[in-house]
Simulated assay, not measured.
Amino acid sequence: MNSSLKFILAFIISLEISLKASLTTNLIVIAFALIYLLVTRIKIKELILLIAVPFIASFTIFATLFWFSPTPDAYYAWNLSTRVYVYTLTIACVTRNTTATDFARSLEQNLHLPSKFAYGVLAAINIIPRMKTAVKQIRTSAMMRGMYLSFWSPVLYFKAILVALNSADNLAQGMESHGYVEGQKRATIVAIPLTKKDWLIFFTLLILVNISLFIFK
Rank of each mutant, 00 (worst) to 15 (best):
T24K: 09
F216N: 03
D102V: 11
F32V: 13
L162A: 07
G120Q: 04
F66D: 03
P154W: 11
T24A: 13
T204P: 03
A52G: 09
L89H: 02
F11E: 00
T64W: 12
F11C: 07
T64K: 13
T133R: 15
I12H: 06
I30D: 06
A160Q: 10
A21L: 12
T82D: 03
D198S: 03
L34S: 05
R139L: 00
T88F: 09
Y148Q: 11
M144K: 06
T40W: 10
A160P: 02
E108V: 13
S177H: 01
S14Y: 10
D169N: 13
A187K: 15
L107P: 00
F158V: 03
L89A: 07
F214D: 04
Q137W: 10
T64R: 11
H178V: 07
K132V: 13
I91G: 13
Y85E: 00
Y76E: 13
K116M: 00
Y157L: 11
V163W: 12
Y76K: 08
F151Q: 08
P193C: 07
S167T: 12
A160V: 02
Y76R: 11
Y180G: 06
E16A: 15
G120T: 04
L200S: 08
A57P: 06
L200N: 10
N79M: 01
Y36P: 00
P54R: 10
T40P: 00
R139F: 03
A92C: 01
L162R: 14
K20G: 01
L122E: 08
A77V: 08
A31E: 04
Y75H: 13
H178F: 12
E46C: 00
T188S: 06
F214Y: 14
P114K: 03
D73P: 03
C93F: 06
L80N: 08
V190F: 09
A191C: 07
F151V: 12
F68R: 05
T99D: 05
